[in-house]
Amino acid sequence: QLWTVEEQKKLEQLLIKYPPEEVESRRWQKIADELGNRTAKQVASRVQKYFIKLTKAGIPVPGR
């Protein structure tokens, strides 16, 4: 299922709330739990694509 604008905005906020961890899967699980309707795997996939998009555009990656 496609990500809504609201989900993307919340994801961006949660990336700041939950900074990078030694075991990133824990971070994705915390974010997924707060989103409520996404799995950690879906979050990880979305974040990877989002970070690539930001990097290509020369925009700083949130939480890094």
Rank of each mutant, 00 (worst) to 15 (best):
Q48F: 06
G58R: 08
P20S: 15
Q42E: 14
K9H: 09
I16G: 10
K30A: 05
A57M: 12
K49Q: 11
A40H: 03
P20D: 14
D33N: 10
A40V: 08
R26P: 04
P20V: 10
F51P: 14
I16W: 10
N37I: 09
S25W: 10
E34V: 06
L54F: 14
A40D: 05
E21D: 11
E24I: 05
Q48K: 13
Q8H: 13
K10F: 06
E12T: 06
R64T: 11
A57V: 07
P20I: 13
L15K: 01
L11R: 00
F51L: 14
T39D: 15
V23K: 09
R46T: 09
T39E: 03
K41L: 12
I31C: 03
K9Y: 08
K56R: 13
Y50L: 09
L15S: 02
Y18D: 01
E12S: 07
L14S: 03
T55S: 14
G36D: 14
Q13A: 09
N37G: 14
K17C: 04
A57W: 05
V43C: 02
Q29A: 09
R26I: 15
A57R: 12
V61G: 10
K56F: 01
E34H: 05
D33W: 04
L15W: 03
E22W: 04
I59N: 14
G58H: 12
N37S: 12
R26H: 15
R46L: 11
L35Q: 02
V61A: 13
A44F: 12
I52W: 10
R27E: 02
L35H: 01
L35N: 00
V61M: 09
E12K: 06
Q42K: 01
D33E: 09
K53T: 14
I31P: 00
V23Y: 08
K9V: 07
L14C: 03
K41N: 11
R64I: 08
D33S: 08
S25Q: 12
E21W: 02
R64Y: 09
D33I: 11
V23P: 14
Q29G: 09
T39V: 02
K53R: 11
T39M: 01
R38M: 08
A32Q: 02
R38T: 07
L14I: 00
K53Y: 06
W28Y: 10
E21N: 03
R46K: 10
K49G: 11
R27P: 02
L35I: 07
K49L: 08
L11C: 01
K10N: 07
N37W: 08
A57G: 12
Y50A: 14
A40C: 09
R64Q: 15
T55M: 07
L54I: 09
P19N: 04
S45Y: 05
L11D: 00
R26S: 14
V61K: 12
L14E: 01
A44W: 07
I31L: 03
I52V: 15
N37A: 08
G36S: 07
A32N: 00
Q48D: 10
R38E: 02
S25K: 07
R26N: 13
G36R: 07
K56W: 03
E21V: 04
R64A: 11
E24R: 03
K9W: 03
E24D: 12
A32C: 03
V43I: 09
K9D: 11
I52D: 15
R27Q: 03
V23I: 08
G58F: 04
A40S: 09
V61I: 14
E12Q: 07
E34R: 04
Q13I: 07
L15Y: 01
T55F: 03
P60A: 13
R26D: 14
A40Q: 06
R27A: 03
P19Q: 13
L11Y: 01
F51A: 15
K9R: 09
L14W: 00
T39H: 02
P62M: 06
Q13V: 07
E12C: 04
L15I: 08
K41I: 10
Y18M: 04
Y50F: 09
Q8L: 10
P20N: 12
P20K: 11
K49I: 03
K49M: 05
S25M: 14
D33L: 07
E21L: 03
V43D: 00
Q29P: 00
I52Q: 15
E24T: 04
Q42Y: 06
I59E: 15
I16E: 15
W28R: 00
F51E: 15
F51R: 13
E24L: 07
P60V: 06
A57P: 15
E34M: 06
A57S: 12
V47D: 02
P19C: 05
I52P: 15
Y50H: 14
R38G: 03
G58C: 05
V23C: 15
I59G: 15
I52Y: 15
A32E: 00
I31F: 03
K30S: 05
G36M: 05
N37Q: 10
V47Y: 09
K53G: 14
K9S: 08
L14K: 01
K41R: 10
L54M: 13
Q13K: 10
P19F: 02
P62V: 10
D33C: 08
T39N: 07
L54W: 11
R46Y: 14
N37F: 07
K9M: 05
Q48T: 12
L54H: 15
R64V: 12
G36N: 08
N37K: 09
V47E: 02
V23Q: 14
Q48M: 11
L54P: 15
A40K: 04
E12A: 06
E34N: 06
A57F: 11
L15T: 02
K10I: 07
D33Q: 08
L11S: 02
W28G: 01
R64M: 13
I16V: 15
V61Y: 07
L2V: 08
K56Y: 02
R26C: 11
A57I: 10
K30G: 02
W28Q: 02
G58D: 14
Q42N: 05
P20W: 10
A57Q: 12
R46C: 11
Y50C: 09
K56L: 05
K53P: 14
V23H: 10
A32H: 00
P62H: 12
T55A: 12
R27L: 01
G36T: 11
N37M: 07
L54T: 15
V47N: 01
Q29M: 08
F51Q: 15
I31S: 00
S25C: 12
W3R: 04
L11F: 04
K10M: 10
P62K: 13
P20A: 12
A44L: 09
S25G: 13
E22T: 12
K30Q: 04
G36V: 12
E12H: 06
R26F: 11
Q29D: 12
R27Y: 03
Q42T: 03
T39K: 02
Y18H: 08
A44Y: 06
P20G: 08
T55L: 07
A32R: 00
Q48P: 03
Q29R: 08
I52C: 14
K10Q: 09
L15G: 01
R38H: 10
Q42M: 08
R46M: 12
V61N: 12
I59S: 13
I16F: 07
A44N: 04
K10A: 06
L11I: 04
L15N: 02
Y50N: 14
R27S: 02
A44P: 01
V61F: 08
K49S: 12
I31W: 00
W28C: 02
I59Q: 15
N37R: 08
P20Q: 10
R46I: 11
P60W: 05
L14H: 00
T55I: 06
R26M: 11
E34W: 05
L11A: 01
A57N: 13
E22N: 08
E6D: 09
R38A: 06
A32F: 01
A40E: 08
Y18Q: 00
Y50D: 08
I52M: 14
I59W: 08
K30P: 00
K10L: 12
I59K: 15
V43W: 01
A40N: 04
P19M: 07
K9A: 10
V43N: 01
L14P: 00
R64K: 14
A40G: 09
E12L: 04
A32V: 01
G36H: 11
W28V: 02
D33R: 08
Q13N: 12
W28S: 01
Y50Q: 14
R46P: 00
T55D: 11
P20M: 11
Q48Y: 09
